[in-house]
Nucleic acid binder design. Structure first.
Lengths: 351, 351
DNA sequence: CGGCCGGGTTATATCGATATAACCCCAGGT
DNA sequence: ACCTGGGGTTATATCGATATAACCCGGCCG
């Protein structure tokens, strides 16, 4: 490995002059600059990032901790964040938490031990207080809910409002006997959803309830068996078996909804003829499933933008006042709720 | 940030003794060990990875360069690789190449500049010679084709054999007028697919041709418009519009196949009643689409295992003899080729 | 005409860990 | 009794870059 010292000798200057020409932190005469660059080129010099990091105290790496990278939503999110951070000259290390407390704690520890410049944590297991405690002075932006004290930067979706809009969409189209896929039993929900430790899914279920109460005679039952496609299919079959007259399905994620479409097909139920289905996240696949899936689009662009902004801000100033950003949302009606193939923008709203 | 020196002072020993107790590289008496660990605990010491890296010349990070993380296949692959490398104590930095030469060159450069311990490169744009030249002495494992000289470690799929098996599956079920989604014009294929710079998709198309020639009276036309869901849908519509009597569709990836299912639905064609569809990759969604998608499962497990093994081996020994590993494959027949909902393992084969 | 200023450059200390070699001391072999 | 050996420990050099302060020199101000 060719070092700065060798470049310096080749160019007949000191290492600091080489450093200065390369970083541009201090002025260098045009003549020396040329000689240095020429030597750099000739020797094929590349900075040793480890040494630079040691001295600078920065690594140029941020962590991204998500439940699992292969999910529809997190794949999308990861992809966008990687691209966006790249524009800021930051690289992204991916950690998978498995949506567990241990996984999230490991991600935080890892980020500190390896001195990442910051961490984007999609938190489902840890509370804000725990994140704050475990994170120490590590810059962290949390994606998700559970913000009780607002002492950590948060980027969240319009979960309640979005889910309510989704539900109203079904109700407006005549649904009265709803199934909710991916939510805890609805009667147990009240307490959790309003208060402290509510998860995104709880909040979405809460949004469903909110909309449901606006329409007399409308009812809903929930089922939950996980977050993957198989879970969606299983829940759909379960709900349909329990109530053959079900006429609408609100799924708390598109992954669950796509699985549910499969489960309904298994059970011989036709969408949208027999019942309507709507999801949440507006992943790419929603536009291409058969039937195409209506969904709540949570402003991916804005959320990514804001996540990056907040993390950079905090890296820059650890004492900055914590912010909570809630993305906008858009209801996208497609075939699964009786719409046409081409997406129809029905409603745009804020939390 | 508390340093080793402070721990040493607190424990009344030298920094080297602290280092030794922590790394375990040299023996330390039980008594001192206890004192050191106690001091570490009390002060909340954590090693400075930048300093360790500088000294050790390793970073504990490997790069993973894929066209885009949000694709079905690459999300799956990324997820598995991240998990698998984690077991080896390695973290993964994701780079998106956009399937372009420039992106792949950037990934290689980045990996060298940042001194990753190695790089897993899903190469579509660069030739092996270019990878070798640009990579320098960086340990690299290439996922994909184009290995001409076998001087770089490769992990590949049974593209030809797998695609041939997929095609035979359709032919056995009576298809005679096939469409190939994601392949270049088939008559232009011969030259490219046998020889040097063949891409995975070319090889799969080649496999289709191989099987096709075995059945007199069978024909195929190809269409290609990209690699995403929209491309799959567009190709399917295009092929069907050109030949309404099309009775089978071989798609070079599941993403294209899932898009194609959508495109066929748009055109009013029923799968599997009017025509059969098969994909390649066996992504999660294939099991849950409607109809569920038959596919070639390329031995994800083995490929990931082998990728990690080869990279670790080369990190350990840059002069090791380059290897090419070709994964096994399995044909999974589902509804889209007239199978039942539950997957049916029809054929297991090697390249 | 002397002192000050600032562009341009350099030597040196420093970041925090690890490799190296030297040291001490006691057990065991001869 | 002496030498050898190795467990346990330490001081110091080192990894490769950057921060710091000092230096040189020509121009400008008073």
């Amino acid at each position: 490995m060719v070092t700065m010292r060798e470049v310096a000798e080749a160019a007949g200057v000191s290492v600091m002059t080489v450093s200065n020409t390369l970083t541009g932190l201090r002025p260098v005469s045009p003549d020396t600059r040329r000689r240095v660059l020429e030597a750099v080129e000739r020797l094929g010099y590349q900075v040793n990032v480890a040494a630079r990091n040691l001295r600078r105290g920065r690594t140029g790496i941020v962590g991204l901790a998500v439940p699992e990278l292969s999910g529809h939503y997190f794949g999308l999110l990861g992809s966008r964040l990687v691209a966006r951070f790249a524009r800021e000259g930051l690289r992204v290390v991916v950690e998978e938490t498995g949506a567990s407390r241990e996984g999230e704690m490991a991600a935080l520890r890892d980020s500190r031990v390896n001195a990442y410049d910051g961490l984007v944590l999609s938190a489902v297991g840890l509370s804000e207080a725990e994140v704050e405690a475990l994170g120490g002075d590590l810059p962290v932006v949390v994606l998700g809910e559970r913000q009780a004290h607002r002492r950590v930067d948060h980027v969240r979706m319009a979960n309640v409002a979005g889910a309510a809009a989704a539900t109203r969409h079904l109700l407006e189209r005549g649904c009265r006997r709803l199934g909710v896929v991916g939510a805890p039993p609805l009667d147990a929900l009240g307490a959790a959803a309003d208060g402290e430790g509510a998860q995104a899914f709880d909040l979405r279920a809460h949004g469903v309830l909110t909309a449901l109460r606006e329409v007399p005679g409308a009812s809903a039952v929930a089922a939950s068996r996980g977050t993957d496609l198989a879970a969606g299919a299983a829940c759909a079959r379960e709900l349909l078996a329990a109530d053959r007259r079900l006429d609408g399905l609100v799924c708390v994620t598109d992954t669950l909804a796509l699985g549910a479409l499969r489960g309904l097909a298994d059970a011989g139920a036709r969408v949208p003829d027999d019942l309507l289905v709507i999801g949440f996240d507006d992943v790419d696949d929603a536009r291409f499933s058969v039937p195409s899936l209506s969904s709540i689009a949570p402003g991916h662009e804005e959320m990514v933008e804001e996540t990056v902004r907040l993390l950079l801000r905090r890296i820059d100033d650890r004492a900055a006042e914590p912010e909570v950003f809630t993305g906008p949302f858009t209801l996208v009606a497609r075939e699964s709720t009786g719409g046409r193939t081409r997406p129809l923008q029905v409603l745009r709203g804020q939390a």
